[in-house]
């Protein structure tokens, strides 16, 4: 009991410093609460895969960040944090059940194109030289987005980390890039 009280007051002190704008206190606070949240999520949502647990922990941390002004420095920290965690776990459970309800397990995917159509599609875009030339004609931002996401098949998170661009900017850039590429390839052929 005393330990948990001491722990709470320690975290509350870090949270107060965080509200004051201290980056190091914020980093320490988040680093200390992450394992605690992981334990809470695991004990409440034992059926989740480790990756889903991490997603949920990250979601709770982002939520904490979004509403950090709602913490009252005069009150204990852990009840505030756990209320956020419970809410995000409930939302996560709703999302999980929706996803499970919409997923269909299949052993083998049905063919959706005839062989001829598939080959035609490949022929259109398999001219690597033409594709390379068309890529060079794209603006730099669009070219990099297409290369990272479509050619190297990086995930949005990985591409964002590598380029320093936000996920939203990458989505816009790749969408515009593909549109421009289509127009260029259509003109060429």
């Amino acid at each position: 009991m005393i330990q948990s009280g001491e722990r709470d007051s320690g975290l509350a002190a870090l949270m107060r410093q965080t509200q004051g704008g201290s980056e190091s206190a914020y980093h320490q606070l988040l680093t200390e609460v992450a394992p605690l949240l992981r334990r809470v999520v695991r004990s409440n949502r034992g059926f989740l895969q480790p990756q889903d647990v991490e997603d949920l922990v990250q979601d709770i941390l982002l939520s904490l960040h979004a509403v950090r002004a709602s913490y009252d420095p005069e009150r204990p920290f852990l009840p505030w944090l756990m209320a956020i965690a419970r809410n995000r776990m409930a939302d996560g459970a709703r999302r999980y059940s929706r996803r499970v309800a919409n997923e269909v397990a299949v052993e083998r995917y049905p063919e959706i194109l005839s062989a001829a159509d598939t080959n035609k599609l490949l022929d259109d875009y398999d001219d690597r030289e033409m594709l390379g030339k068309a890529l060079q004609r794209l603006p730099r931002g669009q070219r990099e987005a297409v290369e990272m996401l479509k050619l190297r098949e990086l995930s949005l998170k990985e591409a964002s980390a590598e380029s320093g661009l936000s996920i939203a900017s990458l989505k816009v850039a790749v969408h515009r890039g593909i549109k421009s590429l289509r127009a260029i390839l259509r003109d060429e052929t």
Binding site: Q19, E23, Y26, S70
Partner: peptide, 10 residues
């Protein structure tokens, strides 16, 4: 997240 630390008024 920690990199986005900025003063907030409770």
């Amino acid at each position: 997240i920690a990199g986005q630390a900025s003063p907030v008024r409770p």
